[in-house]
Write a protein that binds this DNA or RNA. Structure first.
Length: 443
RNA sequence: GCCCCGGUCGUUCAGCCUGGUCUAGGAUGCGGGCCUGUCGAGCCCGAGACCCGGGUUCGAAUCCCGGCCGGGGCGCCA
């Protein structure tokens, strides 16, 4: 039963739509009990003197059976004029039933129409082959009414909850870093400029530098927040605004944070198994520890498969897919060439051309990147120069490296990428409420 | 940015290759009607579409060119 609101402040005239139960909670055991359900008309089956309203809410669908002989004229009239997606509130008695397929139905005492709905622009009932994604995104608020979408976004919420719980368990605290930043000098990805009073600022592409700085005081931090990339990419797994799960920990190295990542990923899988099975997606929770191969291993494995990659080049999408096919479960690639990674990545001592870095690959998808970071200021400045970056442009960031910067490591995980591989969807936009891509700024 | 593919009722699928028989078909949704146990409800009636521009032709949904929009693959992505 839904947690009751404060009844002392509840105005009587709205009591009719303050629901007492989710649709999914209406079970035969409630037989004879009065309930109030509020939601949307999913479907109406009109058989003349008896009408069946399938009432949908976020949690499920319940049948409201309206018999002409058992309701007053006003209720019958209201029910007769209902159409799909009308918003209604039903006060009635639960009846365990042998004829109803679900074994239970609600016999209404009162039906209140809260808002009329026009015919929908797209099909949400599965009566026709699925509408193309572009059109579904244009009418996204309608598309989200589909059961599969409700389940998908409940699952996404469960994933975030599981991640937070796991990370708190390791002593991390959640932080929030600015999304409006001053610098565009970090190199790499293009940034979105924004007007910031009389100056130009930029949308943050990553909390990377901030989270590293925070290890000098808060030690173990994580942030789940948006990141912006102004890249004009056009693929099924890139968008220009995404949610990044960023973790950074003092006094740890890449192996330590890989272990934490394994836990976060496994707990995420556990959190969605039940939900995703409701929409026909059976996921297998991966077992720990994940398989680990080195970058050099990856190259020789791919070489045997006829995919030639020059040492020092990144593993292309095709290569990741091939490796996933060979390994068959989530796996780490470690020890990437140092120059392939960002300036803050710590090289391996005694093998400086390789780094203490890793990627987590699931189903050919790069879900996470991480590494041990350089914590020595002069080494960091050297690494910047090696990549053509001017340390002077990072003076604000570099300060803390002179004032007690601990050794640290961390990773960044693409939340939607993880969700997409867990849900088995082909396009990342499926798991984003309102995706932002090269051509889509609305809705 | 490159390569390939596509655009038909609100939605979805056919028709296009091989131009006329298309007054453009089916399903679903929508409007109306019938039915007191539907649960993929059923039956009857009705409204509803060839992306835009140009060309070829006696004739274009169909062939050609351009535009716009979309899909897939790749690239880019500290």
């Amino acid at each position: 039963m839904l947690k009751d609101l404060n009844t002392r402040t509840r105005p009587l005239n709205v009591a009719i739509y303050r629901k007492t139960h989710w649709a999914s909670e209406i079970k035969p055991e409630l037989d004879g009990k009065e309930v109030t359900l509020s939601g949307w008309v999913w479907e109406i089956r009109d058989v003349g003197r008896i009408k069946f309203i399938m009432l949908r809410d976020r949690e499920g669908i319940v049948q409201v059976t309206v018999k002409r002989s058992l309701v007053n004229d006003e209720t019958w009239d209201t029910v007769s004029r209902l159409s799909k997606e009308d918003v209604v509130s039903v006060r009635g008695i639960v009846r365990a039933s042998k004829v109803a397929k679900a074994g239970v139905e609600v016999e209404p005492i009162e039906v209140k129409l809260l808002n009329k709905a026009n015919p929908l622009p797209i099909d949400i009932w599965g009566n026709v082959d699925e509408t193309i994604l572009d059109l579904r995104l244009r009418y996204r608020t309608v598309d989200l009414k589909r059961r599969s979408n409700v389940v998908l976004f409940k699952a996404l919420s469960e994933v975030v909850k599981a991640m937070r719980t796991t990370l708190y368990g390791y002593g991390f605290i959640e932080v929030f870093t600015p999304k409006i930043i001053a610098t565009s000098t970090e190199g790499g990805a293009e940034l979105f400029p924004v007007q910031y009073f009389e100056r130009t600022a930029y949308l943050a592409q990553s909390p990377q530098l901030y989270k590293e700085e925070l290890t000098a005081s808060l030690e173990r931090v994580f942030e789940i927040g948006p990141a912006y990339r102004a890249e004009k990419h056009d693929t099924t797994y890139h968008v220009n605004e995404f949610i990044s799960v960023d973790v950074e920990a003092a006094f740890m190295n890449y192996r330590d944070v890989m272990g934490i990542l394994e836990d976060v990923v496994v707990e995420s899988y556990k959190a969605v198994v039940g939900l995703l099975s409701q929409i026909g997606r059976e996921v297998r929770v991966p077992s720990k520890p994940f398989k680990v191969i080195t970058y050099d291993d990856a190259l020789s494995m791919l070489d045997k498969e006829g995919i030639k990659i020059k040492w020092g080049d990144d593993v292309p999408k095709e290569g990741l897919e091939t490796l996933s096919r060979l390994i068959g479960e989530p796996f780490f690639i470690i020890h990437f060439p140092t120059m392939l990674r960002a300036f803050y990545t710590k090289p391996i001592e005694g093998d400086e051309s390789r780094s203490e870095s890793f990627d987590l690959i699931i189903d050919g998808m790069e879900v996470t990147s991480g590494s041990t970071r350089i914590h020595d200021r002069s080494e960091l400045e050297k690494a910047m120069r090696a990549r053509g970056l001017n340390p002077d442009n990072f003076s604000a960031h570099l300060e803390i490296y002179s004032w007690g910067m601990p050794p640290h490591a961390g990773w960044g995980l693409g939340l939607y990428r993880l969700m997409m591989v867990m849900a088995g969807v082909k396009n990342i936009r499926e798991v984003i409420l309102f995706p932002r891509d090269r051509y889509r700024l609305m809705p």
